[in-house]
Every structure is written in structure tokens, then in C-alpha cells.
């Protein structure tokens, strides 16, 4: 018996454009947010999202339901491309952005008070800055656990590492992040 997502993939493979649109709509936002949390730059996140979705479209035939959920497969492709991009950026560093968060489309995050929205944007920016200072492994673990809300098992499947390693990375990542944020807060207060 095929699940809803598997049926959707089947329809995509049969050339149903509406099904593909449903896939893009349902997974595109998550991929975009994940990309943004890794890159901290809107344009780069958009480029990455586009690249990831094109890759997914081209490789839909290679998806095997018995190997895991479609979402897991999508995230694996996304993660691999994000890591590739990160490596490229490390080789050819670009000027860092990150000031755009407040001006971006925060449509589903309902903040009726503009002052509160600005504060929230500032706090998010502060956190994003702290995340960028972590090592890629720790940053990835914290993003997947605390921002994406994934379970240890899912993270373990996605990263293809034992669950113990995932827990250890998350613990170290949180600790590092807290230390960085404390330091930044102290420097800001001075």
C-alpha cells in the first residue's frame, strides 16, 4: 500500500505537474529555511533551494520507498548540497550577509506588535550569528535538533552517524553556542 507521499512521487513520475507543484510547495519552504539557517544569506539560500529542488526533480526516479521516507530522502539531498556549498564557500569566502532577516518575508510568524517583531528579528539575528561561529558538524546538529525539531533517530539517519554521536554533537553544539552568545552579550554590554 502506497503512502500519500509515495503516491505523490508516483504521480510526479507519470508527468503530473500538479503533483510536482505540491511537492515543491510542501518541501520547498523547509528546504529554504534549512538553507537559510546554514548560509545566513537570503540570496544564497534561494539559489541553494532552487538547486536542491532541481536535483530532486531530476533524481525522482532514484527514490526507493523501502529505503526510507520521501522527506528523509529530500533532506538528505538538501543536506549534501548545502554541505557542498559550505565547502565551496570555505574555499572562496564571500562577504557575509545576515542583516536581511528583519526585511524578509516573515508571513507565518504572526507578530502583531512591530516593536516585538523588531526585537524578535534582532534576537534571531543574534542567534544566527552565534550559529555561524560553530563548527559545521556542531552547527548542523543544533540546527537539525533545535531549529528543525528533528528527532535523534531522524538526525542519525540523515547524517548517517550513530545516535550517540548525534547526541554528543548536539550537547557540544548547545554548549558552544551558549558560550559564544554569552561572550557576545558581554561584549555588547561593555
Amino acid at each position: 500500500m502506497l503512502s500519500g507521499e509515495q503516491k505523490l512521487v508516483e504521480r510526479c513520475l507519470q508527468g503530473d505537474d500538479a503533483a510536482w507543484e505540491a511537492v515543491v510547495t510542501s518541501h520547498g519552504r523547509r528546504i529554504f529555511n534549512l538553507s537559510y539557517r546554514y548560509t545566513n544569506q537570503k540570496e544564497e539560500a534561494e539559489d541553494l533551494t532552487q538547486e536542491i529542488l532541481i536535483r530532486i526533480y531530476q533524481n525522482l526516479k532514484s527514490y526507493r520507498p523501502e529505503a526510507g521516507s520521501f522527506q528523509g530522502w529530500v533532506l538528505r539531498i538538501a543536506r549534501n548540497l548545502i554541505i557542498d556549498q559550505y565547502r565551496k564557500n570555505r574555499r572562496y569566502p564571500q562577504t557575509s550577509g545576515g542583516e536581511e532577516l528583519e526585511t524578509m518575508n516573515l508571513a507565518d510568524h504572526k507578530m502583531p506588535n512591530p516593536q516585538r517583531a523588531a526585537e524578535q528579528g534582532e534576537a534571531s539575528q543574534f542567534l544566527q550569528g552565534g550559529l555561524q561561529s560553530l563548527s559545521p558538524e556542531l552547527k548542523e546538529a543544533v540546527i537539525l535538533r533545535d531549529l528543525e525539531g528533528m528527532s535523534y533517530t531522524d538526525i542519525s539517519d540523515l547524517l548517517n552517524v550513530p545516535e550517540g554521536t548525534v547526541k554528543s554533537r548536539i550537547n557540544r553544539g548547545r554548549l558552544e553556542l551558549a558560550k559564544v552568545l554569552l561572550k557576545r552579550r558581554g561584549a555588547k554590554a561593555l
Binding site: 505537474d17 510536482w20 507543484e21 515543491v24 510547495t25 520547498g28 519552504r29 529554504f32 529555511n33 537559510y36 539557517r37 534561494e46 533551494t49 532552487q50 529542488l53 532541481i54 526533480y57 532577516l101 524578509m104 518575508n105 516573515l106 508571513a107 507565518d108 510568524h109 524578535q120 528579528g121 534576537a123 534571531s124 542567534l127 552565534g130 543544533v142 533545535d146 531549529l147 525539531g149 548547545r174 553556542l177 551558549a178 552568545l181
Partner: peptide, 25 residues
């Protein structure tokens, strides 16, 4: 930090961007 992570804003895909992806795929 953990609380802030949970309340981190979810960014929406802009319709034009979505259209661009669909046209390219």
C-alpha cells in the same frame, strides 16, 4: 538559546520564486 530556536521565524517562499523553480523544472 533553545527557546529562541523554537521561536525562530519560519521564512516563506515568495510566489515569484516558487514560479521560477516550477518553470525551471
Amino acid at each position: 538559546a533553545s527557546a529562541l530556536c523554537r521561536s525562530f521565524p519560519t521564512l516563506e517562499l515568495e510566489p515569484d520564486f516558487l514560479e521560477k523553480i516550477l518553470l525551471r523544472t
